[in-house]
Write a protein that binds this DNA or RNA. Structure first.
Lengths: 209, 209, 209, 209
DNA sequence: AATGAATGAGCGTTCATTCAT
DNA sequence: AATGAATGAACGCTCATTCAT
């Protein structure tokens, strides 16, 4: 029994080591420029071993994204105030997302690019993981609901719809900042202030008047 | 004289035929899953011929995106009303963009994915083509400016910043609808109404009170 | 332990098999007319496997030349008589080189052509391998030095200079015989006797009077 | 009639223009790194036109080599002294060859490399052009004969054999200097003095005692 | 569980040559 | 005579994946 446990623990550890290596390389060289050879070398494992822990390259990529989601979730939960109003928690969640994009730009980019490309081969199983109960998106929906219940959020639009809009809006601005820096520089748009402006616009349209 | 003209016309035609073929395949199989062999076969030309008309795969890809931009521009210009207020033209431009995403979903996706991936290898020349005077984005900035001048758009935020926010917001929702249909279905969010809602929220936050 | 050894042996064997195949094709069709596909087919391996054993075409080519150098070296060492005078050993080395060109005409040609073409892209590392201590050229220099010391070789010219002249002279005649047979036939020059004549001329000019 | 002449002249001129362009590019970029496109562009002609004047790439290359041979011949003839002894004219011819390799290193290299590779596809027609009456080699044979007749050159070896040896010897040293500069530098062998030494050795072995 | 040799289809690109005009 | 569009085979090389050990 104890033996089995140790083996399981070791297996999980090894899996995490591989993700560590992949992550590092993905962030450093870009998703498209990292081969399985590359990862195997970094992880100091044989290429074949990678396939014992992951179905394939895609799966490995997905594991990295998942880890990003966990990180994001952690930040969100940490900043969440159970007693606060829905509106206040919306604000908090937004700030958490922004913090995440700043502190983990690699993960943020990874998530953005994964989303974009993952739908070339629509894989329902994967794309719906963000629908799991604890996911940021589902948590956002809950907060919107709470806000609608406590009257701090408009209730003429379904919580799912509002949540999707808020999420998309903020994501798009963060993507702009993270991936399109040069464009903003060229237009002389300040990165900090565009977040503030977008925040005001999006939230204002969602909170109760 | 006429001969030269005919040849030029034919050459242009051939070029367009190739883009047609590439487009079709890109839309059908996804950007990353189309090879030069594939395109050559579809266009019923030898692979070498492709390289007479395009410098390489990237160039061909870019030509498809450019065509999408032209299409979008056309729709925008068609719906633009010179005499209308900035606010009204903002609304029109939004509707044009929506129409484009509906009528040319392949091009819309292509543009979204191109944008996303093109920044792995930041290529200023290409990424800045959207900054050319006639581009949708620049046109949007002009409209915002007009709106600020005629008082229909808030003027406490720079036109570039407002334009980027509006563009990002709408793009993100259209991307949601075009690429994440299953997600919306699962959440029982209606595609038409989410556009309306986002439109109201975004524009409300931008127009003068 | 024994397992590792066997694997190493097999790996070396496989590497040698590939060189065998490449050699055969290079000699048969000429250096420039052999593709990696070609070699893979001959070796009954996939093209990818070739790249497990060699960095690229150049590397494979180089391996063939290297094998030639080893063969030549072997012959030279076999015929070398430690106790003999420098002059005698010069004669022996010349004969060894001649033997090599006769017994391994493919390798001889390969070396000549490799030298010639390798200098289009001057690659110091490779071109200087012939300068390694055990190489035929360096050994020749040593023999000349010995000859100068024992008085059998003229010492008014540096050993390096003499060695280069001897080597070039003999190489050029062997190249003539190996690659320009038809020319000699046309001029009714006997291959055996031109070697003798060149030998006499070259050596006479180098030995002490 | 005059028209035909003019046309012939123009045709020849155009042919020479093409060789000019090819020459320039061959010398600048190396034989293997010049494409027909490249040459056509340099000559400001269409690629098709090249094939009106030359059977193919090889033929064009050969034309460049031929031009080199003409240049060499010119130098040889200029320095030839009809009244001098065979021995003196041998010396002169050698000096002419050396001058050629110095003043036209591009052509010299071109000739060396052409020779080397041309025998991969043995083409008798081409390889035997150097046997034409006026060619340097044939002229050398004549001089050797003269020397044997006037007693200044040893006559126990056939003139063809002696000529081939002299030619090969000098060529090999010039090739060494022109293509293997780094090797000589490494061995600290002076380029000027190795020519003198080789000259002394080769000629001494060939002249009458 | 771990290995790593082997695969083989695939890639983007080049280029000498042909041929209809 | 001159064009230049078209060809298509060839090239060196990559890489996710498999599988016998």
């Amino acid at each position: 029994m104890g033996i089995q446990e140790r083996k399981d623990r070791e297996k999980l550890q090894r899996r995490n080591d591989i993700i560590d290596s992949a992550e590092q390389l993905f962030f450093k060289h870009g998703l498209g420029n990292v081969s399985m050879d590359h990862i195997a070398q970094e992880a100091e494992l044989s290429k074949g071993t990678l396939y014992l822990y992951f179905k394939g390259r895609e799966d490995l990529h997905y594991a990295v994204v998942n880890r990003g989601l966990d990180l994001l979730n952690e930040i969100i939960q940490r900043n969440h105030v159970r007693e606060a109003s829905g509106a206040d928690n919306l604000l908090q969640l937004g700030r958490s997302y922004i913090d995440f994009s700043r502190e983990h730009p690699g993960h943020f980019q990874s998530m953005m690019l994964f989303d974009a490309s993952s739908f070339e081969k629509v894989d329902k199983e994967q794309s719906l993981k963000i629908l799991e109960p604890g996911s940021p998106l589902m948590f956002l929906i809950e907060i919107v609901k709470t806000g609608q219940e406590d009257g701090s959020v408009r209730n003429d639009i379904s919580p799912e719809k509002l949540a999707m809009i808020l999420w998309s809006h903020l994501s798009s601005i963060l993507e702009l900042i993270t991936l399109r820096g040069p464009l903003l520089n060229y237009l002389e748009v300040d990165k900090g202030s565009i977040i503030d402006a977008q925040f005001e616009i999006s939230l204002n349209g969602v909170l109760s008047k």
